[in-house]
Amino acid sequence: MSGHKRFWKAVSVAQENGLFEPRLDGRPIRLPQGKVLAVRSSALAEAIAGEWGQIAEGASFTPDSLPLTRMAGTMIERIAPDPQATRDMLLGFGVDDGLCYCADGISPVAEQVFAWLSGYGIHPIVTDGLMPVVQPEGYLEALGQLLAMQSDLELAVLGVLAQATGSLLLSLAVVGGAVSLVDAVLWANNDEKSQLATWGQDDELVRTMENREKDILDAGMFLTLGRQVSI
Rank of each mutant, 00 (worst) to 15 (best):
A178R: 08
V175S: 09
P22N: 12
S194C: 13
E204Q: 14
S180W: 03
S230T: 13
D202M: 11
F93D: 05
L31E: 04
I48L: 09
S180M: 05
S107V: 02
F114H: 09
M209S: 09
Y120T: 03
V36H: 07
Q145Y: 06
S180K: 09
R23M: 13
A43Y: 09
P32H: 09
Q195L: 14
L153F: 07
S194M: 14
S167G: 12
L181Y: 06
A142W: 02
R27P: 00
L158F: 10
A10H: 14
E137G: 07
G34Q: 11
S167H: 08
D202A: 11
R212P: 00
G50I: 05
Q112G: 00
L168D: 07
K193L: 14
P22F: 07
D25V: 11
M75G: 02
L44K: 08
G50A: 14
L68K: 06
I106F: 00
L169V: 10
P83D: 05
E16P: 00
V182A: 15
P124G: 09
A178Q: 08
M75E: 14
Q54F: 04
F114W: 05
L217S: 07
A173P: 05
L31T: 04
N211Q: 14
A38S: 14
F114E: 02
A85W: 00
A197K: 13
G176D: 09
G177E: 13
A164L: 08
L140W: 06
D152T: 13
D218V: 08
C100P: 00
P83M: 03
M149G: 01
E57Y: 03
D64Q: 14
E210Q: 15
G73C: 09
V206G: 02
